[in-house]
């Protein structure tokens, strides 16, 4: 076992950020730590790595007790870019290699290989500050694995990174994973969960679901239907008054969750009676987005304040830009 936490708790200014997280990550996994902003993902990773002192529960890395662990066996890519912006790509790699006590002959060869892997070979002498967001994250990844750790913790490394760079970033993670690296990655993107071997869904400081992506989808308890229409927002507003399990905008469609097929005629009838124009309802397979909307116990991204652009934006963003 790489990581085992038991009932991990953390408070900040009297507010409980982690409400008892119990989680185990096995060797060789790519483990997704998924959830919306403020779910406790960063706090969890920092508490595991000893950057925060937990207020309750226990953490065990590599079977050891307490927050002490051999630093050289773990790598970390923080959420904020944490390398020296006023140093070059190579100087940053050199610094961290030396801090881990690696001999120059070893790390220099490794660095060349890693740089070529993500097409950064030509940028060795560029200041880190002048790199694009995606390149910065790739450099952070290289600095995080230059000492060849057994486990790598990444905190939202792909947030704000363009789709091409995200794909390359994930390709590199897969190559490193195949070479034996255990990966724990926090992400707000549902589509990245499908790239993980297992994932835990965090919400409000708690784990709501854990499992492989396929297993997770099997947990979805409702029948899901997609509604296409011109007056989607008005239809949504009408639907929310009906006895449905959930209704929320998902991209250009309205997703409606019912207990079963039997509820469908009643829904069609009610929408037709409302006279909001033509619409079409088709059954759809639930995605992880639908599952996590259900798991969060929330009405969905466009919940209470229907029609506000701010509410619609996240739904549109998370459905696009798949790596």
């Amino acid at each position: 076992m790489i990581l085992e936490t038991l009932d991990l708790k953390k408070y900040f200014a009297g507010k409980q950020i982690l409400k008892g997280i119990s989680l185990a990550i096995k060797r060789g996994e790519i483990f997704g730590i998924v959830g919306p902003d403020g779910a406790g993902k960063t706090t969890f990773i920092r508490s595991v790595l000893g950057l925060y002192r937990p207020d309750g529960g226990s953490v065990s890395l590599f079977g050891g007790a307490g927050s002490e662990y051999p630093k050289s066996r773990v790598g970390y890519v923080p959420q904020q870019f944490s390398l020296n912006a006023d140093m070059t790509v190579w100087e940053n790699i050199a610094l961290f290699s030396r801090l881990y006590g690696l001999p120059e002959a070893l790390w220099a060869a490794r660095a060349e290989k890693l740089l070529d892997m993500v097409w950064l070979g030509d940028f060795k002498n560029r200041l880190a500050d002048s790199l694009s967001g995606g390149m910065k994250q790739k450099l952070a990844l290289i600095c995080g694995v230059i000492h060849e750790p057994e486990a790598l913790f990444l905190d939202e490394p792909t947030t704000g990174v363009d789709p091409v760079s995200r794909r390359e970033f994930w390709q590199m993670l897969y190559r490193l994973n195949r070479a034996g690296l255990t990966v724990a990655i926090a992400t707000p993107y549902m589509d990245e969960v499908e790239l993980c071997t297992r994932a835990a869904f965090f919400n409000q400081g708690q784990i709501r679901l854990v499992g492989a992506p396929a297993e997770l989808l099997a947990l979805y308890p409702y029948k899901l239907f997609a509604v296409r229409a011109d007056n989607l927002r008005l239809i949504l507003r009408r639907t929310l008054d009906l006895p449905v399990r959930a209704a929320y905008l998902q991209g250009t469609r309205l997703h409606v969750a019912l207990d079963g097929e039997s509820g469908l005629p009643a829904l069609e009838e009610a929408l037709a009676a409302a006279g909001l124009g033509a619409f079409a309802i088709t059954p759809v397979r639930p995605t992880l987005d639908d599952l996590f909307s259900f798991a969060a116990g929330l009405p969905g991204p466009a919940g209470p304040g229907i029609g506000r652009a701010a509410d619609l934006a996240p739904a549109a963003a998370s459905s696009g830009g798949a790596p």
Binding site: L51, V74, Y76, P78, S82, L83, N84, F96
Partner: peptide
């Protein structure tokens, strides 16, 4: 403030 300390802290430094 720059966040660089966070990365230094996980090294054996």
């Amino acid at each position: 403030e720059r966040g660089t300390l966070e990365q230094l802290m996980v090294t054996p430094l």
